[in-house]
Computed example of a mutant assay.
Amino acid sequence: MSTIAPTATQSSRPPIIPASFNANQPKTIRLYPLSNYTFGTKENQPEEDPSVLARLHRLQEHYEQHGMRRTCEGVLVCHEHSHPHILMLQIANAFFKLPGDYLHPHETEIDGFKSRLNERLAPVGTQFSGEGVNDEWEIGDTLAQWWRPNFETFMYPFIPAHVTRPKECKKLYFIQLPRTKVLSVPKNMKLLAVPLFELYDNTARYGPQLSAIPHLLSRYNFEFVDENGDVVAMTPGGAWGNPADMPKTKVLAGGDEEEEV
């Protein structure tokens, strides 16, 4: 009888079973597949400012009238091939941002944030009907706070020691997406599904705020659900069996083309 040599997944020695490592487990979040969601487009939403200098000038005017600006953005998470993907907007084929915006001075934080999400992503008119069209946004944990100490572009994940009056505070919230939802993006923007590994340590492309999202989400465990509602994988997951199934950034709606990036 011939002897079969051990392979990468076989060994002549039994595996070493590690000790329990389950104390103080993080919260488990259920993620639904990208195919569960419907994506469309709506009328353009041009940027308020023609340049960065104009945007900073408007921030200064806001600060002089109302004090520190409050900004809320959402981290919307789904999955593709059992890997978390973040839904984000791309403007002018170059600039990436999360859904959300600054709050008006008279608005409360959560209600104002929901209004900004609807302005960016809610369908309009009778474009869509049925399940998932008018679902309420479920605002989850605050994942991070970023501070703008001066009328400059750079923000910090802390308030510098010499700053007593920051000009803007931006909060990133985890948004628990329901099983199905309809989302519409302005035609002058693209809605992308970006895998976590594409964001990780990629400040050159996405900047420090977006590239930090994988770190922020490491506080959770994930359950990955298929279109039938069955859990097919959970953290930690296995490798992809087919290289063609490797997750990649996808254009979901908006822009001139709808293709994989």
Rank of each mutant, 00 (worst) to 15 (best):
L31S: 00
A54L: 04
N228S: 15
N24S: 12
Q145G: 15
P157D: 09
M1A: 15
D226R: 01
N44K: 10
A244H: 10
F154E: 15
A122I: 05
H81W: 04
T71D: 14
E107Q: 11
Y220N: 04
T38S: 08
P157G: 05
E61H: 07
N44R: 11
M1D: 13
L34K: 04
F113M: 07
S82P: 01
A212I: 05
I91S: 15
H62W: 06
V124A: 11
R120Y: 14
E168K: 10
N228M: 10
S35D: 12
E119P: 02
S12M: 15
V232E: 05
H66W: 07
N242P: 02
A193W: 01
E257A: 14
V225N: 00
G237D: 08
I139A: 05
H81V: 03
N22V: 12
E43D: 13
P160T: 05
T28K: 08
M155P: 03
T28M: 08
R55W: 09
V52G: 09
Y206I: 02
E152T: 11
P236M: 08
Y32F: 08
D256P: 04
I213D: 00
K167Q: 11
K27T: 14
E168S: 10
T164W: 11
V133D: 05
D230Q: 11
L59H: 07
G229I: 03
Y102V: 09
Y206T: 01
K171G: 08
I159N: 06
V194E: 01
E47S: 13
F96Q: 04
I4T: 15
Q209G: 06
P46F: 01
S51W: 02
Q65D: 09
I110T: 13
L87H: 00
T203I: 10
D135N: 12
